[in-house]
């Protein structure tokens, strides 16, 4: 019985993981404000605590921009990120780019090069180009609109899932 419960737990957590919609976190106003100005405030789950620590320790050279915060804000945001951080290699990238993590690559495997280079997308950091409601924390598949009209893209997964509802 215990074994079964453990199995169910693992299965459950895998499902949560596989479902890209479960990226909601308790909002932290400072995180939202400071990390959400030049790009959307990326969900803490998408990098490991160790990655976040390195990233927040190098904001003076933040992917080509100086995004330095005052030490108090930096610490508060780092604490928040680490509290909700992802775990394991799938959420880790030595470049500290979320788009280089195995998780990101897998989730976006159906996105074509044409879409990535579309002027409306331009950068993998531009989540809202396709996840139109991501700023409100909605990453559901039904909220995906691929620019350039390639509507078939990214919907195969929904197909595989059959009748599974995306919004929960």
């Amino acid at each position: 019985m215990k074994w079964l419960a453990a199995f169910a737990l693992i299965l459950g957590s895998t499902m949560v993981y596989a479902d890209g919609n479960k990226l909601s976190v308790p909002a932290n106003p400072k995180w939202k404000e400071e990390c959400g100005s030049c790009h959307i405030a990326y969900p803490p789950q998408l990098l490991t605590g160790d990655n976040w620590q390195r990233l927040m320790g190098g904001l003076d050279k933040h992917f080509g921009a100086n995004a330095t915060l005052n030490p108090g804000d930096n610490q508060e945001i780092l604490d928040f990120l680490q509290r909700h951080a992802g775990r394991g290699g799938r959420n880790s990238a030595s470049s500290l780019r979320i788009s280089d993590t195995p998780w990101f690559t897998r989730e976006h495997r159906e996105v074509s090069n044409n879409t990535w280079s579309d002027p409306a997308v331009k950068s993998r950091s531009n989540c809202t180009a396709c996840h139109v409601n991501a700023e409100r924390g909605d990453w559901s598949e039904r909220g995906i609109r691929i620019p350039g009209g390639q509507r078939g893209e990214g919907q195969g997964e929904r197909h595989e899932r059959g009748g599974e509802r995306d919004d929960d």
Partner: peptide, 8 residues
């Protein structure tokens, strides 16, 4: 529109 990230 942010010229690098595309953010509004």
């Amino acid at each position: 529109k942010h010229v690098i990230t595309g953010k509004r």
